[in-house]
Simulated scan of single mutants.
Amino acid sequence: MDGVLDRYREPSQLVQDKVIDHLDRHCSAFIALSPFATLSTADAGGWPDVSPRGGDPGFVRVLDERRLAVPDRPGNNRIDSLRNVAANPRVALLFLVPGIEETLRVFGTAGTVAADDLDVDLTEFGRAPRSVLVVHVTKAYFQCAKAVMRSGLWDPERRVERSAFAPMREVFGDHCRLATPLPDDAVMRADLAQDL
């Protein structure tokens, strides 16, 4: 690292000033449009984890300018994020909105509560979440569009055909060294759709 950081210029005043300590109306509006976010946590030793979260637009609810409610939906039951938050409450979220190239970054501390501990209906796909992560916001800001522009993430011409990558039955079979093959991807996807 010696000398590498010297290659970067100081961030502009605008880049420094855009960091706020709460959710303003623009942050709240962006979160209301977002159907997808990543949740970053770290364990007690500082080892990081990042987890995808998704739902209908606005699935993460703004409770007020300093608090967010992130519902925990059925998943693989590893509950890595929840275990991490129990040991180290620092979290970060990155919100994406299809068609908008800017992203929203939110940082804070979190704790887990039962869904009925909050006075807000987080029912989605016909069921309440198993638990809710309440994030106490300490920092929020919009990230410029460059990364999404470079990636062409929302460009339909750059969409990857599913056939370009191995079927997940093959991937999981190889990763887990399974002796018995898994069902084909259509069956696995149908099973997943039953438990959203």
Rank of each mutant, 00 (worst) to 15 (best):
M1Q: 10
G3R: 10
L5F: 11
D6M: 09
D6Y: 07
R9C: 09
Q13N: 04
Q13P: 00
Q16V: 09
K18I: 11
K18M: 12
I20C: 11
H26F: 12
H26T: 10
H26N: 15
S28A: 15
F30Y: 15
I31W: 05
L33K: 12
S34L: 00
S34G: 06
S34P: 00
F36R: 03
A37K: 02
L39I: 00
L39K: 04
T41D: 11
D43W: 02
D43K: 02
G46V: 02
W47Y: 13
P48L: 10
D49Q: 10
D49P: 00
V50I: 11
S51D: 07
P52W: 08
P52C: 09
G54P: 00
G55H: 02
F59I: 01
L63W: 07
D64Q: 03
D64L: 03
R66P: 01
L68E: 06
A69F: 03
V70P: 01
V70Y: 12
P74T: 09
P74A: 13
G75L: 01
N76C: 06
N77T: 06
I79A: 09
I79H: 13
L82K: 02
V85P: 00
V85E: 10
A86P: 00
A86V: 07
R90N: 14
V91H: 14
L94N: 04
L94H: 01
L94V: 04
F95M: 01
F95H: 02
P98G: 01
P98T: 02
I100Y: 04
V106E: 04
V106I: 08
G108Y: 11
G108K: 08
G108N: 12
V113M: 13
A114G: 11
A114E: 13
D116F: 06
V120R: 14
D121M: 03
D121L: 05
T123S: 11
E124A: 12
A128Q: 15
A128D: 11
A128M: 05
S131R: 15
V132L: 13
L133S: 13
L133Q: 13
V134Y: 15
V135L: 14
H136Q: 14
V137F: 05
K139N: 14
A140S: 14
Y141P: 02
Q143N: 09
C144V: 05
A145N: 05
K146I: 01
A147N: 06
V148S: 06
M149Y: 11
M149I: 08
M149T: 10
S151M: 03
D155G: 03
D155W: 03
P156S: 10
R158N: 06
E161R: 09
E161I: 00
R162Y: 10
R162I: 07
S163R: 14
A164C: 05
F165W: 10
F165V: 06
R169C: 07
E170K: 07
V171K: 08
G173P: 03
D174K: 14
H175M: 14
C176N: 13
L178N: 10
T180E: 15
T180G: 04
D184G: 08
D185E: 15
A186F: 07
V187Q: 15
A190H: 07
L192V: 08
L192K: 09
A193N: 04
L196S: 04
